[in-house]
Design a protein around this nucleic acid. Structure first.
Lengths: 228, 228
DNA sequence: CATTGTCAAGAGCACTGCTCTCGAATCTGT
DNA sequence: ACAGATTCGAGAGCAGTGCTCTTGACAATG
């Protein structure tokens, strides 16, 4: 599979991956903010300045790690999708997202935690970031087609700016009503609020360990968005 | 109000506050991780080592800032509480929390963002952290006493570990049912997931600006927990 | 007045991201 | 196969960081 590439190109690609692997390893222990290029270079037995041949700056390395993290989460979620029952599938995606987050807390923090000081996320990160929400929107569309999506009658229809904003989401899921889309955003933010609280230690003393709380929330949020 | 204290004690207390103020000022621009003791000392016209007379370490300064942030948020929320209508009060607390968070994004990130690498929050932070949830639980109790709290009939009653965990919360709000308490935790995590998404730029492209989305979520979460 | 405790200052250690230069290795066009 | 262009790792160096230790000045206490 490396045919047609020069030895330099292969070496470069391999070393680039090794750098990212070492960075992820260090990330897991010291966190994103404390990620040190010099420590990475030490681990790889090279000199720190040599790293700059592969990543022009620390920020560029972080961007690569962020995209990889979004993709890893997207892969995990997509692997859990596609069962025969939409509700089971919903719960499976929830569980997959949580499992990935708990297995890679620092990578989770990298993408859903506080922004890294002085770091500005480039546009390249938005597409991989959208994979999981798109997955859930697709699930809801299939549920609706199967007659399994019935939002409560008392759910308010968005008006004004909110109605305007749902139009962006409608492009991703044309069949869903604005009501469901806004509820989906509420559910979406709930999921990551819950995960952040669990991973960042905010639930200690109340809902920790959060296994049962998490599945209960997953079920109740499914009902909230109209999934049955 | 400074009576009975020696000149040294007064000077020390004032300088301690000045250090925290400078730290907050720097926090607002560079973020918590990049907070530099030397930069603070430069701003105050003193030498960096002198700061260690007031805060034994960077972590100790951070702890002081974290407690101050929790208290500031608690003050803001409590100031918004206590209207005559419980639903209006609920919305007012939501708005106050959001306003404070948007006015102090870095302090928000300090307490609800990713944990700071190498920093372990001491036990002293949990009490100020509980002020806002206690405020909301109290509101729900008053609503229930006024017959304004009627959780939907299809809300599941927690079982197993989840039922066990609600007992901790029952001590804070003895009149509320486990069903409502779990829903309150879901709502609680939704609030901060939504805030984190807004402040950390995760809503850009969909629900940003989030004013209407936020108030819609506040209303729907009130209904979700049974408040009417 | 003398002692005791507190304070700011400064030097120093080990670390960081990043830049620059300098040879050596590798690739490319002839 | 060879010359020229490109890429690469190494090393020195800059400005910054948190933190420690020592020194000398000041204020509070007896």
């Amino acid at each position: 599979m490396n045919a047609g590439r020069t030895a330099r190109e292969r070496a470069r690609a391999e070393l680039t991956e090794e750098i990212k692997a070492a960075a992820r390893r260090q990330l897991a222990t010291v966190g994103a903010e404390a990620l040190s290029l010099r420590a990475i270079s030490r681990e790889l037995g090279m000199v720190s300045s040599a790293l700059y041949r592969y990543f022009a700056s620390r920020d560029e390395l972080l961007t690569a790690l962020i995209i990889d993290a979004y993709d890893a989460l997207g892969d995990a979620a997509e692997a859990a999708a596609g069962g025969d029952d939409v509700l089971e599938e919903w719960l499976a995606i929830y569980a997959a997202v949580r499992d990935w987050a708990r297995a890679h807390p620092q990578e989770y923090a990298l993408i859903y935690g506080s922004p890294i000081s002085g770091y500005k996320a480039p546009q390249t990160t938005v597409q991989p970031a959208a994979r999981v929400p798109i997955l859930l929107l697709d699930l809801l569309q299939r549920a609706q087609a199967a007659g399994r999506l019935t939002p409560p009658a008392d759910a308010p229809t968005p008006t004004g700016l909110l109605a305007e904003q749902t139009k962006v989401l409608v492009e991703l899921a044309p069949q869903l009503s604005p009501t469901v889309l806004v509820r989906m955003m509420i559910v979406w933010t709930q999921l990551f609020g819950m995960l952040s609280f669990e991973l960042f230690g905010q639930l200690v003393g109340s809902m920790d360990p959060a296994d049962e709380f998490f599945t209960s929330a997953a079920r109740q949020m499914a009902a909230f968005v109209g999934l049955s």
